[in-house]
Every structure is written in C-alpha cells, then in structure tokens.
C-alpha cells in the first residue's frame, strides 16, 4: 500500500521538475534493502527448515526404534515371570522404565521440532508475501519512471517542426484519407482487372471464330479481286 499511495500523490501532483524522481530515492533504497533482507531471511529460514525437518525425522526413527525395544523387553519380562525369575523380571522392568523415559523425551523433542517447522513455514510464507508486495510496488515506481523518461524523450523529439505530432482529429483525418486513397486504388485496380478479363474473353471468342475474327491479308486480296472482276 505504501508506495501506491505515494505514487498517486506524485503522479497527480503533475507539474514536477524535469528529472525529479517520482518517489524519493531514499524510500526506494529502503524498499530495496527490505527486499534484500527479506530474501536473506528466506534463504536462512529454508536452511533452518531443512535442518529441523531432518531432526524431526531422526526423532521419529528413534521413537520407532524404542517402541520395538519396548515390545522386545516386555516379552523378556513376561518370559522371566512365567519361568519364576522374579529378580530377572525386576531388572528387565527397570530397563523398560528407562526405555519409556527415553521415548518420552524423544516424543517431547519431536513435538518441539514439529512446532518449529510450523513456525518456520509460516515465517517463510509471510516473508515471501513481503517480497512479492515490495517487488510489485517497486515495479510500479520503476514503470512510472521509465514512462516519464520516455515521455521526455518523445516530447524532445516531437516538440516542434515537421515531426510534431498532430492533434487527434487531424491525424484521424489524414489516416482516413490515406485509407480512402488506398481503397480507391484497389477499386481502380479491380475494375482494370475486370476489363482485362473481358478483353481476354473476346480474344478467346475470336480465336474460336465466334466473334469477329481478325481480317487476314488473303481475305482482303480476295475482296479486291472480286471488285476488279466486277469493274
């Protein structure tokens, strides 16, 4: 939100000095620094996450191993009891209590790792959001600046003289005129095509002796001879 509002104020303010920044450089530097920091935090959080998830998996494996141990020693204890080795059963029971204590502490550690993972993931999500927002806002500032820079170049080039941009109506008029000329030419060309087409039809007819054929020299001579005979 921050830069968006600043941009609106800056752009709506309109008449600013040529070359003046849209948003002061300090604000931009702060944003860039924040993006940089956020990216570093994100990279660190990703590393931490990998480490914590590895520890979580380790704890998980250890819990599983201890559970297997428990089953095994409980079997031993029951065996010892059934065979009347009360003392041995007592010893095994102590071992079982030890394993259970170890298992409890592993479970507590696993809970901590799970919570840590959750916290890191939420931090990463938040950080990614911050980066996205800052980058979008910076893109807006940069775009505004490059448009203003382009506008200055364009008005420098089209400021005056022969290359001056016309007003909208005059431009439209000229474009329409040019299009009309283009269409007229196309019309002329197509009627010319039609004429040439009909000429070629006539030629075909003549060729087939249907329309008036070209007068041949021999025909003329024959006519002249007939005329001479009459006289």
């Amino acid at each position: 939100m921050g830069l968006f509002k600043k941009l609106i104020t800056a752009v709506r303010g309109g008449a600013r000095e040529v070359g003046e920044a849209v948003v002061d450089m300090n604000a931009i530097r702060i944003y860039e620094q924040e993006i940089e920091d956020a990216k570093n935090n994100l990279a660190r959080a990703k590393q931490d996450l990998t480490a914590v998830m590895a520890k979580e998996m380790q704890a998980e494996r250890e819990i599983k191993r201890l559970a297997d141990e428990l089953v095994k020693y409980e079997g031993y204890a029951l065996d010892a009891l059934s065979k009347g080795h009360e003392d041995l059963a007592q010893e095994v029971a102590e071992k079982i209590a030890e394993i259970e204590t170890e298992q409890d502490s592993q479970k507590a550690a696993r809970e901590q790792f799970v919570a840590h993972t959750r916290r890191l993931k939420s931090i990463m999500k938040q950080t990614e959001g911050t980066i996205r927002q800052h980058e979008r806002e910076l893109a807006m500032v940069r775009t505004t600046e490059s448009v203003q820079k382009a506008t200055r170049s364009i008005s420098d080039n089209y400021g005056a003289g022969a290359t001056r941009l016309l007003d909208a109506k005059a431009s439209l008029e000229r474009i329409k005129q040019r299009q009309q000329t283009h269409y007229d030419r196309m019309d002329a060309a197509s009627s010319l095509d039609a004429e040439i087409g009909s000429e070629s039809l006539e030629a075909k007819l003549k060729g087939a002796g249907i329309a008036d054929a070209e007068k041949a020299g021999s025909d003329v001579l024959a006519r002249l001879k007939r005329k001479a005979a009459v006289n």
Partner: peptide, 13 residues
C-alpha cells in the same frame, strides 16, 4: 498507413 499515430515502446524491469 497510420504514420500520424506512432507507437512508442519502452521497457522497465
């Protein structure tokens, strides 16, 4: 055909 209305192209990031 549309010389009176040039298009200007510029790029930001």
């Amino acid at each position: 055909g549309q010389e009176e209305l040039p298009v200007f192209v510029t790029a930001s990031d």
